[in-house]
Design a binder for these strands. Sequence first.
RNA 1: UGGGGAUUGGUGUAAUGGUAGCACGACUGACUCUGGAUCAGUUAGUAUAGGUUCGAAUCCUAUAUCCCCAGCCA
Length: 592
Amino acid sequence: MNAPDHNPSNNETTPTSGGGRLANFIDEVVEQDLSSHKHGGKIVTRFPPEPNGYLHIGHAKSICLNFGTALKHHGVCHLRMDDTNPTKEEQHYIDMIQRDVRWLGFDWSEHEYHASDYFDALYDWATKLIEAGRAYVCDLPPEEVSKSRGTLTTPGRESPFRGRTAQENLDLFTRMRNGEFPDGSRTLRAKIDMAAPNLNLRDPVMYRILHAKHPRTGDKWAIYPMYDWAHGQSDWIEGVTHSICTLEFEDHKPLYEWYIDQLQAIGVQPQRAISKAGPYRPRQYEFARLNLTYTVMSKRKLLELVRDKHVHGWDDPRMPTISGMRRRGYPPSAIRGFCDGIGVARRENTLDISRLQFHVREELNKTAPRRMAVLDPLRVVITNYPEGQTDELDAVNNPENPAAGSRKVPFARELFIEREDFMEDPPRKFFRLAPGREVRLRYAYFITCQEVVKDASGGIQQLNCTYDPATRGGDAPDGRKVKATLHWVSAEHALDAEVRLYDHLFTKEDPEDQPEGKTYLDVLNPDSLKVVTHAKTEPSAANTSVGEVLQFERLGYFALDPDSDTAAKKPVFNRTVTLKDTWAKVQAKAGD
RNA sequence: UGGGGAUUGGUGUAAUGGUAGCACGACUGACUCUGGAUCAGUUAGUAUAGGUUCGAAUCCUAUAUCCCCAGCCA
């Protein structure tokens, strides 16, 4: 995780600080506040998800930013559920959000909060604003509120209920709370300015009537606060110093300020974590959300993909969700490395998905045990190898990490190699097996292709090869070289496995950029999942635990899926990411 | 035709009036029992037009383009 090793006095040459995390404009603000001793030198941030869906990689950016900023400057970061809309929120989502934040490697310790913890305080303060003449109960139905708000270019009209007395407002508001009125019949509105050019200031709704059961407060409330009324006050109550959100909330900042101004004007000042540093108020800062190529990132769209079964759930390995990536085999450190490496700024950005894959490979290359597996088996018979004989060869578990040791791999007369590792009539740059050509079988022997056996329709059925016993282990004593090394498994010892190969969920870099009448659903990739039902793995692949990621040599990284039947030795592997494939590039170039 | 933001190589991100840098990608080459990894190198950028200044990505003026806002969502 990000080590808080920032040293402001002598880092003039480095653009990064704090465990490789890029310094950003928020760090600058924080450092200024720290040096001016604002907030008594305390830093408090918060990650405020709404529990109406699963966390995705965009949230990971926010999590790394909020927790990372706190960590780096010796502050704390709260986890706060923004649970003000019980019609969309569920306990299940709360649980999954907590699991995902923990899995990512962040710890909020005792700082777990909910906006709903503050419903009483919020209600109390709302009555104070009513008494101060800054809020009123409005009887306009939703359509009328919408109509009277005006448009982007024309001012709104004042509600006919704007002039009610405080007494009347208090009475109505109490009855709203008591559940006397049906949903949608009334709202509590802030009295600001119906002609404000910023639409958020045109008498925004503070409370709406919702006869809904809340995951935490149950049936206690018939009214629920809106985001603007709940969020800033929650920050304030918790002593949050730097309230970091995304760009679309920029227009809400004047309202965020207005509420706190009004409350301060009537003498409200919550108990808070900040110690005797003078009057304190939180400040909002906005950054640009993360976009990724070949995917969508809005919870609404992700929910739609799940609900309409375009994917197999929130944790489908094709989803950009944290849980999908976990299942796919992305290590949390890779996701953190990605988030820390992309920087934080205020301009719109779209990161190439390959950038995330870079971090995944970087991490897995260092940590994933190597195994051999063949996805598309082609039978090879070593004609000069004795029938019935078996040999055990030493194979290195991870060339990047000698401490990972080695294992034994069985070798026999009949083997499988990858079908695409043989070509009968190879082009110039194809180094692998071909008639008459000698290659190395990884950790085993040099073999030479002597004969191609075909079936009736001309398909290649089997290769008859000879091996050189002197090359046992993979080295030729006479020093002769070979251009290629192939992975292989022994046919009789191989384990059957299901392997799921994933590709982009969408065929377009920007799935949302569609012509009139089309949507992102029209560019779903029909080949985003390919299932190989009878892949062959070396026997030791059976000793893999769910979630563990292996490198199948020359193929890529593969994570053992929870669908695996480990008792029946029927593993299911998700391809996390391929290895970088220079040959594929050569082929693509030759192709056109 | 309202308000708020943004614009630096293909993609991200630095440079806060003083040498436009870093990462990813792409391309070379070296090395290699993974066409992986590693190592070395190359490539390519300040939206446009004026102005201020010894000096401008940075300051000023205009223009262009893109994003956000009219939920009783967050």
